[in-house]
Simulated assay, not measured.
Amino acid sequence: MQQRPLGRTGRNVSAIGLGTWQLGADWGQVSETEAEAVLAASVASGVTLFDTADVYGDGRSETLIGRFMSSHDAYGVTVATKMGRRMAQEPGNYTPENFRAWTARSRENLGVDTLDLVQLHCPPTAVIEDDATYEALDALVADGAINAYGVSVETTAQALAAIRRPNVTNVQIIFNPFRLKPMDEVLPAAEAAKVAIFARVPLASGLLSGKYSPSTTFADNDHRTYNRQGEAFDKGETFSGVDFDEGLAAVRELTEALPPNVSLPQATLAWIATRPGVTSVIPGARNVDQATSNADAAALIDGGFDVEAFDAVVRDVYDRRLREVIHPQW
């Protein structure tokens, strides 16, 4: 597994990380035993980045990771959490007092004195553009509550605003074959500024797994049921904002372009990880097989798969099927 610099922190993180939204909520239930097995399988496969958030299961994901880290040999694993979504998304809630309270709760959940990396969790644009935001985050670093900070964003404009801040370690943004806009400006800007990019929702909420059909249904408490039109949060978080049926048609084209020994999810993860400017891809996993398969995609980064030929297909499918609708939105 390739290990890549985490911005200017001196740390390295794996090219394929693990997103842990599934271990909290909004994807159906995952037992504590299953969650621990997912974390263990990921570490055994060379994963050194866990991405979580205080809102995932209202702290459940953080707590499970904290228990795992305290009871397993997980040396070198960076735990990146996020904060800010447990309150109304109003700029007035992003205060130094709330930052201290939110990070204190995450430190307790994770069982650590200092958080490795804290990211603002898709805050309003006004928060990303406010000097006071970064002054408060710098104070947390100075106080030893956090080692570094970044921003998770919805739009490329937000990403570019965050990248311009000198102490931002990373930007987390949706990037996959259904969301190519970050390639235009965000990835080059991040690479030039030595800001790490975490590619989130890399499999478009599972749509790019190639396992879904028009008849596929999801649990009532799964955001793929209740948030397709943005009923609960930004619709781009669910299937990357792509219409489900149109996404299935695009998936068929992408799959047909692959050799028989390469799966679509592994090809997708390898393609994302090899785009210049991407530091780590953070797919989620609900079971050990998913976690292992995701991590195994790292083998395709170093050879055995013509990633650039797949890149040409990705761009063609996006341009014909998705660009007109998707590109202007985020």
Rank of each mutant, 00 (worst) to 15 (best):
A104Y: 02
R105C: 04
S106V: 08
R107S: 12
R107N: 08
R107A: 15
R107F: 07
N109L: 13
N109G: 10
N109A: 13
G111A: 11
G111L: 08
G111P: 12
G111K: 06
D113E: 15
T114H: 06
L115Q: 05
L115I: 14
V118N: 07
Q119H: 13
L120Q: 04
L120P: 06
H121M: 08
C122K: 09
C122V: 14
P124E: 08
T125W: 12
A126V: 12
A126P: 10
I128F: 10
I128R: 12
I128L: 14
E129D: 14
D130Q: 09
D130L: 10
D130R: 13
A132K: 07
A132W: 00
A132H: 10
A132N: 07
T133E: 11
Y134S: 08
E135H: 03
A136H: 13
L137G: 02
L137R: 03
A139I: 06
L140Y: 00
D143A: 15
G144E: 09
A145N: 10
I146S: 05
I146N: 09
N147P: 00
A148C: 11
Y149L: 08
Y149S: 04
V151T: 11
V151N: 01
V151W: 03
V151D: 00
S152T: 04
V153M: 08
V153N: 08
V153R: 08
V153D: 10
E154P: 02
E154V: 15
T156P: 03
T156N: 12
A157C: 01
A157K: 03
Q158C: 08
Q158S: 11
A162E: 00
I163W: 04
R165T: 01
P166M: 09
P166F: 07
P166K: 06
P166Y: 02
P166E: 04
P166D: 09
N167Q: 12
N167C: 04
N167G: 05
N167H: 15
N170M: 11
I173K: 03
I174W: 00
F175R: 00
F175M: 02
N176F: 05
N176C: 05
F178E: 03
F178C: 10
R179D: 06
R179P: 00
L180G: 04
L180A: 11
L180R: 00
K181S: 15
P182I: 05
M183I: 07
M183K: 02
D184I: 15
D184Y: 11
E185S: 12
L187I: 04
E191V: 04
A192K: 15
I197S: 10
F198R: 03
F198Y: 12
R200P: 04
R200Q: 03
R200S: 00
V201E: 11
V201I: 14
V201K: 03
V201W: 02
P202V: 09
L203M: 12
L208Q: 02
L208A: 10
S209K: 12
G210E: 06
K211T: 15
K211V: 14
Y212D: 12
Y212N: 11
P214R: 04
P214V: 11
P214N: 11
P214F: 10
T216L: 13
T217H: 08
A219S: 13
A219W: 06
A219Q: 14
D220G: 06
D222N: 13
H223G: 01
R224L: 09
R224V: 10
R224G: 07
Y226F: 15
Y226A: 13
Y226G: 14
N227Q: 06
N227E: 09
Q229E: 14
Q229L: 15
Q229F: 03
G230T: 03
G230H: 01
E231D: 13
A232C: 04
A232Q: 12
D234G: 07
